[in-house]
Design a protein around this nucleic acid. Structure first.
Lengths: 139, 139
DNA sequence: TTGCGTGCAAAGGTTTTGCATGGCA
DNA sequence: TGCCATGCAAAACCTTTGCACGCAA
């Protein structure tokens, strides 16, 4: 599966440990650096970028591109989700900018529909539903 | 529908005229500037950015984010697509870049589901499904 | 010991912003 | 005439790259 070496460095371990404490949440590179620095742990942001890229390749972390000028979001994929191939969708509110992160049967059905009826293999990591959230709509 | 003023400036007209000549194609801000400058037309890239944003708000242009460090792509939406009043969805192939327009009952059901079960008002003009089209998938 | 990982600084590129000027209504 | 749009320059921002050093194997 992989031919590259992969040292178990202190930084990788600390980064991965942190990601595991926030499964299913969207974390930016800055979030990681801020958190670890507050914990007194020293890690360079370049290292976080490189380790994140590696973990995405390994399939243990997902990368999301929400908006052009928002930083990339990373999310730890729990091993239980590995097996069920958990599909997570994102809704972005155009008013308040809030990102809603949802896992839903009906939405998973979209994938199947697109595949079966349109031959289109949907990539939920890149797909964002834009609209207006409930709070902004009722306001 | 809109409260903002919208002057018919020379730059907006020329930008829009150009976009209309390349419907369904993805155009970057640089593409526009280069093309218009070759035509001897003077336009600042800041103006292109601002007019593009406005046209996206108006729903006559779609904005696509293909990759994190690629410039945003814009695409003119033909008026025939306008009239479908939000039941037209777009799928963008990450491999070949092809844009697929689809009008489909099952997809319209997504809107209702998101509204009823999640309180989220979907804006189909801004929402693009990313994935791999049938041709690229079987290749 | 070998060579991979790290981290600082700097570069690279896209997009936004400040502000004075010019043009549409 | 009154605003809005324009455009230049500069800023802001995220991400990548170069290179020397340190650490895992």
């Amino acid at each position: 599966m992989e031919g590259k070496p992969n040292y178990k460095t202190k930084q990788r371990t600390q980064l991965l440990d942190y990601m595991k404490t926030v499964p299913g949440q969207h974390i930016t590179v800055n979030d990681v650096c801020d958190y670890l620095h507050r914990q007194g742990v020293s890690i360079g942001q370049t290292t976080v970028y490189r380790q994140m890229e590696r973990m995405v390749d390994e399939g243990i972390v997902n990368k999301y591109l929400i908006d052009a000028n928002s930083p990339a979001c990373f999310e730890y994929v729990p091993e239980s989700d590995h097996r069920t191939e958990g599909v997570c969708f994102h809704c972005k509110c155009e008013k308040c900018g809030k990102l809603i992160h949802m896992t839903c049967e009906a939405l998973s059905g979209i994938r199947e529909h697109l595949m079966e009826d349109h031959g289109f293999l949907l990539d939920p990591r890149r797909t964002v539903f834009y609209g207006v959230c409930e709070a902004c709509r009722t306001a």
